[in-house]
Every structure is written in structure tokens, then in C-alpha cells.
Write a protein that binds this DNA or RNA. Structure first.
Length: 152
DNA sequence: GCCAACGTTGGC
DNA sequence: GCCAACGTTGGC
């Protein structure tokens, strides 16, 4: 899962009560479908910081609530407001995410691109703009190893 | 700041 | 249903 640290950093997420927050504001159908179909309670997540120098994997999180309606879509005051979404027929979904551990050594995108084990991961491929997408267990474990959390 | 990638919108 | 125009993302 990708987030701009200026907007919502991993450290901020860790500081919240129960280190848990809803992952609202996803307004892309493919990303929504990945949350709806691919995220179960207990699933582990790599928390990635985009639009920062350097872009990097920052920490590990887990899903603590499966997909449910994103109420920011029907809040006219919200920057994520989408008038097509209603409580009766929500267009957008969110999940709840608990931050678990910061990576002792954040793993930069450049480092990931240099690791042959990660060459098939969507994150290192050109033009990937999805904020939520699945990665394999091999990729997940390799990022943890590179980040100094191999025993976690 | 540039620009490639790619999703969305809307006229036809 | 096509596709040009436009907007957004995000690395560089």
C-alpha cells in the first residue's frame, strides 16, 4: 500500500490509537477491487512511501478490518467526496490497517530495482500507479529481509 | 519542473 | 463503442 509521507506517513500511523486507521480515499476501481477481493484480516502489508526522496518501503502493517464502505465519498466536506457514491449504494471501499513495525533500514525503490528477486514485483515496473496491489510472499519476505526484519 | 503512463470523461 | 482530450500519479 502506497502513501505520501507528507500526507500520511507510517510513523504517524504507528502513533495512532492501536496503530490503526482506515485506508480511505482510494478512488481507483482496480485498487478498490484488490481491497475488496484480496485483503483478509491478518494479511500483511508493506507500507510504501511515494513522492518522497528517496521513495521507499517504510514498514509492515496488517489488515484488521475487511473492506467496508468509504464514508468520505459521501461527505461533501471531504477532499475525497464523490457525489455518485451514497450510503445506499457506496461506490468506494476502505479497509482498516494496523501498523506493526517500522523497517529498521527503509528499503529504497532503487535498492528494490537492483534486486533480481523483486524484478517481477509491480512496484518496480514502469508506470505502476496503483496505490494498492498484491505482491507475492517471496517479495514480501525479501523486502523484510532487506529492511532488517527477517525474523518478524 | 518534466514527462511517461494510464485512468476517466464525454462528444460523436 | 471509439477515441481525443484531459487529469493524476509519481519517478526522475
Amino acid at each position: 500500500m502506497k502513501s505520501e509521507p507528507d500526507v500520511h506517513s507510517f510513523e504517524h500511523h504507528l502513533s495512532l490509537p492501536d496503530a490503526t486507521d482506515s485506508w480511505n480515499g482510494v478512488r481507483n476501481y482496480q485498487a478498490r477491487n484488490y481491497m475488496r477481493d484480496g485483503m483478509k484480516c491478518g494479511d500483511r502489508v508493506i507500507f510504501y512511501h511515494s513522492n518522497t526522496e528517496p521513495p521507499h518501503a517504510a514498514g509492515v502493517a496488517e489488515i484488521v478490518r475487511e473492506a467496508y464502505p468509504d464514508h468520505t465519498a459521501w461527505d461533501p466536506e471531504s477532499e475525497y467526496h464523490d457525489p455518485r457514491s451514497t450510503p445506499e449504494k457506496p461506490s468506494w471501499l476502505m479497509v482498516d490497517v494496523r501498523a506493526l513495525r517500522a523497517l529498521p533500514m527503509p528499503v529504497s525503490l532503487a535498492t528494490m530495482k537492483g534486486n533480481p528477486l523483486l524484478e517481477d514485483m509491480p512496484l518496480v515496473r514502469r508506470g505502476n500507479r496503483l496505490s494498492v496491489f498484491p505482491i507475492s510472499e517471496v517479495h514480501y519476505l525479501e523486502i523484510l529481509r532487506m529492511g532488517g526484519l527477517e525474523d518478524f
